[in-house]
Amino acid sequence: MTKRVLVVDDEADIRAVIQGCLEDIAGWEVLTATSGEQGLQIAVKEQLDGILMDVSMPGMGGLEALQKLQENAITQTIPVALLTAKALAEEQEEFASLGIVGLIVKPFDPMTLVEQVASVFGWES
């Protein structure tokens, strides 16, 4: 079963690496968004199995977008994992209270990214 993952990150190179890894290695379908706003628009329209959301983006950041996803009946059941460059222990606790499925810390290793993503979403094959 092909998974559909939305990657929301304002950095083009990060989106490209994640998309390449998930499509080439796992064979999943990857949609991308450059902002929280765009991510929300895609999440409402598309059937998604999971969302990888960058925390710090200009405009609507990942936490604000996450809150909006959780407030919307259409999108509140989509599991969200946060992409974050600075995951301090206290931040991780704060993030855990937000109802996300996990954190993926940047910089990540492209070779293990698929396993990390499958693991946070609970998609072990």
Rank of each mutant, 00 (worst) to 15 (best):
V8L: 06
L98C: 03
A33I: 05
D9G: 01
D13A: 14
A96V: 00
G61C: 10
Q19K: 15
Q38H: 14
I14G: 02
D9E: 11
E11S: 08
Q38Y: 07
K106P: 08
A87M: 02
Q41A: 15
T34W: 06
E64R: 10
G39C: 09
I14A: 04
D54G: 00
I74V: 15
G50R: 00
I42E: 05
F95K: 00
S56M: 15
V8K: 09
A16G: 11
A16Q: 13
A73R: 13
T32D: 10
I100R: 08
E29D: 14
D54V: 04
G59K: 10
Q67E: 15
G99D: 00
E91I: 12
L83G: 01
S35Y: 04
V105T: 15
I18P: 02
L69H: 00
K86L: 13
G36K: 04
T84C: 05
G61V: 04
P58K: 10
Q41P: 07
L103R: 00
E29H: 14
D10T: 02
I18N: 08
G59P: 08
L103F: 11
I100Q: 08
L88N: 15
L63E: 13
V105S: 10
Q76C: 14
L40Y: 03
W28Y: 04
E64A: 09
I25F: 14
E64C: 05
Q70R: 12
E11N: 12
G36D: 02
V44L: 09
I100N: 13
V44Y: 12
E93Y: 12
L83Y: 01
I51G: 01
K45G: 11
L88T: 15
K106Q: 08
L52H: 03
L66I: 03
K106I: 03
L48T: 02
I18S: 00
S56R: 15
V8N: 02
V101E: 12
K106S: 10
I104T: 03
V101M: 13
W28R: 00
E37Q: 12
I42M: 11
S35N: 02
L48I: 06
Q38V: 04
A96Q: 07
E46K: 03
L40S: 01
E90L: 12
L98W: 09
E29K: 07
L22A: 06
P79C: 07
E37F: 05
P107A: 08
E11R: 09
A85V: 11
A33H: 06
K86T: 13
T84M: 06
T34Y: 08
I74P: 07
M53A: 07
A85I: 06
Q38N: 14
V30K: 07
I14P: 00
G20E: 10
A12S: 10
